[in-house]
């Protein structure tokens, strides 16, 4: 790549202005701008609108939202999810009436909701749909007494300490944060899930929130 371009021969009729005149013109322009900018009217034109007390700041282009469901825009930066060892479809279970807490039973009592053990899968699938090819895969893991090596979809960064229990105790639905998993074939991540601003928005608009104004609530 060239260092620069060769200077083009300037067109005479424009560049005939002398340097002193250029200096005077630019100086006058700057002073003019300063004078204009100091007038009260200019202030209203140029200034960023300051929010009145009690109102959240408005950001140009984003309309204020009621907070739920949260709509903070998210730009995905992760590579696509690797395939699961068994392509487990949540819709198959939920459409038959199995609640989330049946398998993810830790959600009400523990920081972690948990993944069902192979033993728990086999608890039903020893008899239910035992000839289905997907269930056969699960049975193979049980017979080998090996855990199913799932790919973890919902995972906060290591410096966030999150507990399910108080959120369920507050009456939150699983879909609020995890998306409509009950309709998913293979679980996909909920896009907005990983941003702290998304948590903050929801917390601001709840009737009895724990205000996340103190860092030690989640970061320790």
């Amino acid at each position: 790549m060239a260092w620069g371009r060769e200077r083009e021969e300037p067109q005479r009729h424009i560049m005939r202005i002398s340097s002193r005149l250029r200096f005077l013109v630019s100086g006058a322009a700057i002073l003019g701008l300063l004078w204009v900018g100091s007038s009260p009217r200019a202030r209203t034109l140029l200034a960023v609108p300051t929010p009145s007390p009690g109102q959240p700041p408005t950001i140009a282009g984003v309309s204020p939202n009621p907070g739920f469901p949260p709509t903070v825009p998210f730009v995905p930066t992760r590579p696509p999810v690797p395939p699961q060892p068994v392509p487990f479809p949540h819709v198959a279970m939920v459409s038959r009436g199995v609640p989330c807490l049946f398998c993810h039973s830790g959600a009400t009592t523990s920081p972690a909701a948990g993944i069902p053990s192979v033993y728990q899968c086999m608890g039903c699938h020893l008899v239910i749909a035992r000839d289905s090819p997907l269930i056969r895969q699960v049975q193979a893991y049980w017979e080998a007494q090996q855990p199913i090596p799932w790919v973890r979809i919902y995972r906060l960064p290591g410096f966030v300490q999150f507990s399910h229990r108080p959120h369920l105790a507050a009456g939150l639905n699983c879909e609020a944060c995890h998306g409509d998993v009950g309709q998913m074939e293979v679980t996909v991540p909920y896009p907005a899930y990983k941003q702290m601003g998304w948590c903050l928005e929801c917390h601001e608009h709840q009737p009895n929130p724990l205000p996340l104004t103190e860092c030690q609530i989640c970061h320790y």
């Binding site: 290591g158 410096f159 300490q161 507990s163 229990r165 108080p166 105790a169 030690q216 609530i217 970061h219 320790y220």
Partner: peptide, 28 residues
């Protein structure tokens, strides 16, 4: 408790994880 890597300052937290756990328990 988070495991800190190089480049991070740390110090006693009065076991904030225990404080939080107890407060969560009490709130629940």
């Amino acid at each position: 408790v988070t495991v800190r890597t190089a480049g991070i300052m740390e110090k006693c937290t009065f076991c904030i994880q225990r404080i939080n756990r107890a407060e969560q328990q009490a709130r629940t």
